[in-house]
């Protein structure tokens, strides 16, 4: 589904990703772990198409399409979804109006008919139940005045509505208490299907107790230095990142 080959990218002339390789198949959950500043969020932003990040080399293929040539909205319509680490507050833009526009733009791109207001609200109701999200939030402006937990839940709620093929969860666990974490994880798990995939980006292993990954990758200094099964996350939890950093340094890769 997703093939990243030798990807290098940076911002403001500073290279952050340095030849990253990753392959994700449909039906899989991959976790990307790594210390602060290793490039985890950069990877998420580059995949979503954030213009501030410049790709200097490499390719990203998504279901046979060259992803890097697409605009952010085209990537979303192709099935990429980024759950933001810091969801943006957008005063004056109503949550429901926003999501209906996004939903219908994606439907249109797939050649499907748009839903009218009544049909869309029925869908929304179903999905808010899944995330135990207060429907009142949806009558407010996008993320405006939401608590940290509400913002994160709202991200997964949007994901539930848009039903992406590849969901990228960027530090979705940060700022969540344990109850919210369970709700969000349950939501993500319910959305798993054989034909979609999830990329979970996290600093801590905690989230992976609830969203169990098939593969765990450790990102250090802009490249993946170690990959393994879910047990790798537990090892990182116990031993920290130092032993991997030392290993990476020993290999002459800063």
């Amino acid at each position: 589904m997703l093939e990243i080959r030798d990807l290098s990218a940076g911002v403001d002339g500073k290279e952050i990703l340095k030849g990253l390789n990753l392959s994700v198949q449909a039906g899989e959950v991959h976790a990307i772990m790594g210390p602060n500043g290793s490039g985890k969020s950069t990877l998420a932003q580059v995949l979503a198409g954030r213009g501030e990040y410049a790709v200097t080399s490499g390719t990203v293929t998504f279901n046979g399409v060259s992803l890097l040539e697409l605009k952010p909205e085209e990537r979303a319509r192709a099935g990429i979804f980024l759950a933001f680490q810091y969801p943006v507050e957008i005063p004056g833009v109503n949550s429901t109006v926003f999501l209906k526009a996004a939903f219908n733009e994606c439907r249109k791109a797939r050649g499907e008919t748009e839903l009218d207001a009544v049909e869309f609200l029925a869908l929304v109701k179903k999905k808010t139940n899944l995330l135990e999200l207060d429907p009142a939030l949806l009558s407010r402006a996008v993320n405006e005045g939401f608590s940290g937990g509400e913002k994160k839940r709202n991200e997964i709620f949007q994901m539930a509505v848009l039903e992406p093929k590849l969901a990228i969860l960027d530090e979705t666990d940060s700022g969540l208490d344990i109850d919210a974490l369970k709700i969000v994880s349950r939501g993500v798990n319910k959305l798993r299907r054989p034909d979609n995939a999830t990329l979970v980006i996290t600093h801590y292993q905690r989230l992976l107790n609830y969203i169990v990954p098939d593969h765990v990758h450790v990102l250090v200094h802009g490249r993946i230095v170690k990959s393994g099964g879910k047990e790798l996350a537990l090892e990182l939890e116990q031993r920290g990142y130092d032993w991997i950093l030392e290993g990476a340094a020993a290999n002459g890769k800063p």
Binding site: R50, G51, E73, F81, I90, G92, F98, A102
Partner: peptide
Amino acid sequence: NDEALFYLRSRGIGAGLARRMLIRA
């Protein structure tokens, strides 16, 4: 706001509509 614009676009909303939504807001 570039961040707001990117957020809207990252959900599938085209750049033109995203801008109109923000201006309207």
